[in-house]
Simulated assay, not measured.
Amino acid sequence: MRPDAIKLRSVSKRYGTGGSTVTALDDITLAFPAGTFTAVMGPSGSGKSTLLQCAAGLDRPTSGSVRVGDTELTTLSERRLTLLRRRRVGFVFQAFNLLPSLTAAQNVALPLRLAGRRPARSRVREVLCQVGLGDRAGHRPSQLSGGQQQRVALARALITGPEVLFADEPTGALDSRTGREVLALLRDLVDTGGGTVVMVTHDPVAASYADRVVFLVDGRVSGELKEPSAGEIAAHLTTLEAGEVAAHLTGSEAAGFGAAGKATTC
């Protein structure tokens, strides 16, 4: 049995106070085993990004427990939490967040420099080669395509050897071909490198690269699929979104929705 790289227990996250309180996560218990690739999906506003932020230590839950390996995140000071993020987790987002004045190699080395460590050129070259950019080390972001910039961002996330890589819509700004290349790299991190990847996405094709897909609705876990096809994921999402629309209809509206069997959503 694989140990858990990340475990959330009874995690809730609320914003605001009194009558204006919004519950983004509602008593979620969920584990991400080491050496696996998990995609998190759900309708807009279901709590996907909030889940990722709490699991990665970017935000603190209102209640509950979050553990990275054997470390409880909710009791750490801000300083220790920052150190944990720098040393044990990696992040890739839809926006590449590269510094335009730095070369690819300098962008990759940045997390180590921020941590007060001297990056070895051989290590920087190694991770750039790992993402297929060994010959682009001296190029600045403006000299790279969108897919290449996302690869640099991925190499930057890998430079510290993180236990878990969190990806929030990593292919959202890419065309389908370069998106597939980035997803193949994430898949290889798990299959060849034994890494753990947790990815938020709205794209069924992207999610099909994962070992399992966890679905959220209204801040709660609403089932999962293991090794599903893109078609199976899309069908499940359609069912969830239809159910969410029906849940917000009342009386004759709900009856009409059921009779029609479908609804138009934004």
Rank of each mutant, 00 (worst) to 15 (best):
S65A: 10
V66S: 12
V66W: 13
R67T: 15
R67I: 09
R67E: 14
R67A: 14
V68D: 12
V68G: 14
G69T: 13
G69F: 09
G69S: 12
D70P: 06
D70M: 09
D70V: 14
T71L: 13
T71W: 10
T71V: 13
T71A: 07
E72P: 11
E72T: 07
E72S: 12
E72Y: 10
E72A: 05
E72H: 12
T74W: 05
T74V: 15
T75W: 06
T75Y: 08
T75S: 15
L76V: 10
E78F: 14
E78A: 15
E78H: 13
R79V: 15
R79C: 11
R80V: 05
R80C: 04
R80Q: 13
R80M: 09
R80P: 00
L81C: 06
L81F: 13
L81A: 04
T82D: 10
T82P: 00
L83A: 15
L83P: 00
L83W: 14
L84H: 10
R86A: 05
R86W: 02
R87A: 14
R87G: 10
R87C: 09
V89E: 06
G90F: 10
F91Y: 09
F91L: 11
F91K: 03
V92F: 12
F93E: 00
F93I: 03
Q94P: 02
Q94A: 03
Q94F: 04
Q94G: 01
F96Y: 12
N97D: 11
L98C: 07
L98T: 04
L98R: 07
L98A: 02
L99G: 06
P100R: 10
P100D: 10
P100L: 06
S101I: 06
S101N: 09
L102K: 05
L102R: 10
A104W: 04
A104D: 08
A104K: 09
A104L: 04
A104C: 06
A105V: 02
A105W: 06
A105M: 07
Q106P: 05
Q106N: 11
Q106G: 03
Q106H: 11
N107E: 08
N107Y: 05
V108H: 01
V108R: 02
A109Q: 07
L110N: 02
P111K: 07
P111F: 04
P111C: 07
L112K: 04
L112H: 08
L112W: 06
L112A: 08
R113T: 07
L114A: 08
G116L: 02
G116W: 03
G116R: 14
R117P: 04
R117C: 06
R117M: 05
R118K: 11
P119A: 06
P119N: 03
P119V: 06
R121V: 04
R121Q: 12
S122L: 01
S122Q: 15
S122K: 13
V124C: 00
V124I: 05
R125L: 00
E126Y: 03
L128K: 00
C129H: 15
C129E: 15
C129Y: 08
Q130R: 15
Q130K: 15
Q130N: 13
V131Y: 04
V131K: 11
G132E: 03
G132M: 05
L133H: 04
G134P: 01
D135I: 02
R136D: 02
A137V: 02
A137W: 05
A137Y: 03
G138P: 08
G138S: 09
